[in-house]
Nucleic acid binder design. Structure first.
Lengths: 219, 219
DNA sequence: ACCTGAACACCGTTCAAGT
DNA sequence: ACCTGAACACCGTTCAAGT
């Protein structure tokens, strides 16, 4: 009798060879489900029906694995830059796209933001943002700095939104003797409201920069 | 000959009993030096010249240990609320104090910000901020929401400053055909500059909220 | 009450060996 | 070239036993 050379059906065993992309994709699934901190090389291998050590032929170590997953997700970000729309609308859409991406992979986002190389110079997100700022009238030499501050602030708000801090804080009693309490807006529109509060503040600030540079030019 | 009952001098061995506060303090020292991710119950015990298992009589587990350290540092934050100064100055000082604290324990800050319970309702930081916003003319029912967004944005900027992202981003070429490049300001004042860019933007935004509510009241 | 040694169930990673 | 088993040097934590 021919012994089970080919794995019995029902028992899924790796048929296709391992690939870097496949490993990243599986890792992302596990991260989305259970978070970065519980991801394990051994569990990842199990999810791929592979030997734990096989992974090391495609990925140097766990740290590189996480970096790979993060940059894979970052590359998903594709902005349709509508050059004909006013810059306010373009910046808004950029932020919304990023937020949607963050909501799609909240656990990864929380991890990634702590990493130093979160946003890369070549990222379409970065290119689009600097482009919009330039077209908004922000002076050339200030574009990078303002873009950086905007990124940081938006990421901060997104993290706080994702881990629930934003919602918790906003329902805190504002002062010792509060008056109009318990508005009880529903949770979803509340989250949106706060995000757009931040976004509008940012847009206003950019507008200020534009105004200032205009006034300096005409003086 | 009397065998070494009392530990030989030179070899430091625990003389005072372990305490929760002592454990937190030692943990903070290790975190400041090497970061949260390399902190280990066993290494912490070694730093305290104690048996690893002794720690578990004062702290339930590693997660609680980290929470304890974080809240211990958070409690260090004491704001001298100068009620007589204009709110712009008070909000600025609040942010500066927080930034100083973050710079004192950057490794802990990076970890803490990811945690859901980073800022507690009773934190003096939170109370001071909501108080300032109220005195700035922000409508009662908006104070918590605005405070939350400000916290999130400031934390985001601080994290990005601490892990170097802010500096790296700001020195990125802003657009394909850049003109005035290589300003080469020194790094420290650059960091300050970006922090205050964000801070000024926030103050401007609060000012807008105040204006809006004023106009609504007089209409 | 406080501490401890041994042990358990995990980790990431190395390495020599297999095909 | 790709995979693998065994092993190493770690983890956090439990538990029974010591004082």
């Amino acid at each position: 009798m021919e012994t089970a050379k080919r794995t019995p059906r029902g028992t899924k065993k790796r048929d296709t060879p391992l690939t870097e992309a496949g490993i990243y994709a599986a890792a992302l699934r596990l991260i989305d489900a259970d978070g970065v901190e519980t991801l394990t090389m051994r569990k990842l291998a199990a999810a791929l029906d592979a030997n734990p050590m096989s992974l090391y032929h495609h990925v140097p170590n766990k740290e590189a694995l996480l970096r790979g997953v993060a940059s894979m997700v970052g590359a998903q970000f594709r902005t349709v830059t509508q050059k004909d729309r006013p810059w306010q609308e373009r910046i808004r859409q950029l932020a919304e796209d990023f937020r949607a991406l963050a909501h799609r992979h909240p656990k990864l986002m929380t991890y990634s933001f702590g990493q130093p190389d979160f946003v890369q110079p070549e990222d379409p997100f970065w290119l689009a943002l600097t482009d919009v700022l330039a077209s908004a009238g922000v002076p050339r030499q200030e574009v990078s700095r303002i873009a950086a501050v905007i990124c940081a602030a938006v990421f901060g708000v997104l993290i706080a939104e994702i881990n629930g801090a934003l919602r918790r804080w906003s329902t805190l009693p504002p002062a010792p003797g509060a008056t109009g309490e318990g508005e009880s807006v529903d949770a979803d529109s509340e989250g949106d409201h706060m995000f757009y509060t931040a976004l509008n503040a940012i847009i206003t600030s950019v507008h200020m920069t534009e105004l200032k540079s205009y006034m300096m030019r005409t003086n």
